[in-house]
Design a protein around this nucleic acid. Structure first.
Lengths: 229, 229
DNA sequence: AAGGTTCGTGTACATCCTACACGTACACGA
DNA sequence: TCGTGTACGTGTAGGATGTACACGAACCTT
């Protein structure tokens, strides 16, 4: 193998902002660092990129290794390259954000001894490195994207009620939405399939369950159609 | 300096998609490669990231060195990390897109012996590496962004007519716009300053000149307001 | 059986988007 | 100087879309 250049090169890492939604809040998964620098501080799950894996693969591997998370919605966010962002040496980080269904992934977050926990996005601890800037960027991207792409579904279980879906949008956007108008818009997208089931074990009238219509979505996507919520 | 890890690491490059607009078309700046691999093929301007510069700085440096371009609108696009994208060795590329005022930057594009030229975006030659995918992504981003951010101005000289501005949008979006509706929307943004000048040396009634109101833009930006065109 | 909780639904008004045509200004050439 | 060519600059009407807003029905619990 010939080398393209022989100058020293930055280390290359991936870091992931993993969003999840529980009953109360939109949350981010953090891992407590065991080693210096920033030992004891909370940080984003992430690690170095290997030569034989793509960036996406590296991100998924780290999610698996550090948080036991698989098969999530994952999208590249931004690449952070400030010279001094890691005090040890030059490290450039390609960042991703992921959306997970907390209901299905349970709370299983600490895999290999490391401590992991979910934090509400407006109650985050101090983070290691420049990870606060990364989280900020991820939230901004999520807020922007949720309005024209159907990513709200990624935070919910397969079957969900319209009220649950509305909660997702309210939590992500940070403000309340009108129930009737929300329903009108969301069914108008044609991306929902109405099921013949209702939610179970609730102490009131049960709501109808819906599911996301992936086929319809792929069709819309191909045709380049957009929708807004 | 302690090393964070001692595994082999990918080389890290930046590549730039530089957009310019002339009388006819939206164009991209390409550079003809002199060396293998892909010797003779056209490619995006770019190069390797140094340890003492940020990614943005690396991109600007390459634009200066390879194309003589300075002070342009520059924004990070995406990071490409397929394992085999460079046949020599693993190279990850952080890509940027830039908007330049062709009218002001003249045609000065070849600085250091290398051959450089502008190509209309729907008449591109075959490109080296995965640069076609990069250009595609840049065009998609530009099309999306132009609708809610005032980047059309970056492709025009300081003083421009509304017809020129409309041309920009038409070229970028790829379809024609209604003259009256376009003007209504664009003046409604409050981002234009009407000058007491008209264009010169035209063989017909001269159009009024406008300029971009950066102050108004910064204010809008702070308040988080959006606008659409 | 009564009470508590969430479900599910429609309309009226304001706003925004779209489609569309013609008289005017100016330069140029005959 | 007069005619011609070209791009400039302007308004309105109709349709579509977004917003604000309240209440009876269903179902579970006690």
């Amino acid at each position: 193998m010939t080398h393209t250049y022989r100058y020293p090169r930055p280390a290359l890492a991936v870091d992931c902002v993993v969003f999840g939604l529980d009953e109360e809040d939109l949350k981010v998964l953090l891992i407590r660092r065991g080693v210096e620098p920033f030992a004891g501080r909370w940080a984003l799950p992430g690690g170095f990129v290997r030569l034989d894996e793509t960036l996406d693969e590296a991100a998924r591997r780290e999610l698996r290794e550090e948080a036991g998370i698989e098969k999530v919605y994952l999208e590249q966010l931004y690449t952070f390259g400030a010279v001094e962002r890691d005090p040890r040496e030059r490290v450039v980080s390609v960042t991703y954000y992921a959306l997970v269904k907390l209901s299905e992934h349970a709370v299983r977050a600490a895999t290999d001894a490391r401590e992991a926990a979910w934090f509400a996005i407006d109650d985050l601890p101090r983070l290691a490195f420049d990870h606060e800037a990364i989280v900020d960027k991820a939230i901004a991207r999520l807020r922007g994207k949720v309005r024209y792409a159907p990513i709200g579904f990624e935070l919910l279980p397969k079957k969900f009620t319209l009220t649950q879906l509305q909660r997702v949008y309210e939590k992500v956007l940070g403000h309340e939405l009108d129930k009737r108008n929300f329903r009108k818009k969301v069914v108008a997208t044609g991306l929902l399939i109405e099921l013949d089931e209702v939610e179970q074990d609730v102490a009131h009238r049960a709501a109808r369950l819906y599911t996301f219509d992936e086929k319809a979505y792929r069709k819309l996507e191909k045709e380049g159609f957009l929708f807004e919520i």
